[in-house]
């Protein structure tokens, strides 16, 4: 038995994560913007420091640029994502869109201004042969979230999402699908933030106190097909009601039309 196997068995069940990758990205973008704006302010102050004395002395300095208007933030959506210019979607992409459209007719793909800082985000996928990975933001009414799908043939990195006997509170279920698929589902709701200090000072075993009343909700479905193909489909939403239900997500994951090219 290898050391890795021993460690993997020692770790046992891996609980659902509270990490929201999209929030990490948003936080880092914001941090970058603040640093950039701070630098611009410093440069602006330096320019003012040069031009104001000139103005006072009766020498005309260069005109300062007017403040740009705040960008409007309107979220647009479409029934299907659009491919990058000059590219087309793969058969796997189209199968994913069709499955989502069938299982969740009210779901639309967010095509612009998501997550609200002006970046164009559409469905992005990598590879149509093993491994395949696709992701994109979706909405159903005013509920928004991030959908992703991984698809691999004979995946070595497969992990148990949860163990039903010990994590019933996380909606952990293992069952068999209509075509013999092994299905694992789990759902989790966690406070969006809980500072490291706050957690560290909590007595052992006590739940961490949330530092806001907002939650991130995540659903995960892993399906192992009889032919060895392994899928993980996730839905992560900033809030308590994702645009897809766990049942809808499971139905998408079980769609036999989603295959590797």
């Amino acid at each position: 038995m290898s050391y890795q196997t021993v460690f993997r068995e020692a770790v046992g069940e891996i609980p659902p994560t509270s990490i929201d990758v999209e929030q990490v990205i948003r936080r880092q973008r914001r941090r970058h913007r603040l640093r950039r704006n701070g630098l611009a302010a410093v440069v602006g102050a330096a320019v003012l420091g040069v031009t104001v004395p000139f103005a006072i002395a009766g020498v005309s300095g260069p005109d300062l640029p007017a403040s740009p208007a705040s960008p409007s933030s309107t979220t647009q959506s479409a029934r299907f994502p659009r491919p990058d210019p000059g590219t087309t979607f793969s058969a796997t992409d189209l199968a994913v869109f069709a499955a989502l459209s069938r299982e969740a007719p009210d779901v639309e793909w967010i095509t612009e201004d998501w997550p609200s800082d002006g970046d164009l985000v559409t469905w992005k996928s990598v590879g149509s042969t093993s491994p395949y990975f696709g992701q994109g933001p979706i909405r159903a009414g005013d509920r928004t979230g991030y959908f992703s799908m991984q698809l691999e043939q004979s995946w070595d990195n497969r992990v148990a999402l949860c163990i039903p006997e010990t994590t019933q509170e996380n909606g952990c279920v293992h069952r068999t699908g209509p075509a013999g698929e092994k299905i694992q589902t789990s759902s989790n709701q966690a406070p969006i933030t809980a500072s490291i200090t706050n957690r560290a000072l909590k007595p052992r075993g006590m739940p961490a106190a949330p530092t806001s009343d907002r939650f991130v909700t995540s659903y995960r479905v892993a399906v192992e097909r009889p032919d060895g193909t392994f899928l993980i489909v996730t839905m992560v939403a900033d809030g308590e009601e994702p645009p897809l239900t766990l049942a809808q997500l499971t139905a998408v994951a079980l769609d036999p039309a989603i295959t590797l090219d």
């Binding site: 891996i14 994560t17 990490i19 990758v21 990490v24 990205i25 992005k124 990598v126 491994p131 990975f133 992701q135 992703s148 991984q150 990195n157 992990v159």
Partner: peptide
């Protein structure tokens, strides 16, 4: 995003 999402479990 793809890198992080696929490595999240091993990193955890």
């Amino acid at each position: 995003r793809q890198f992080v999402t696929t490595r999240l479990e091993p990193l955890r």
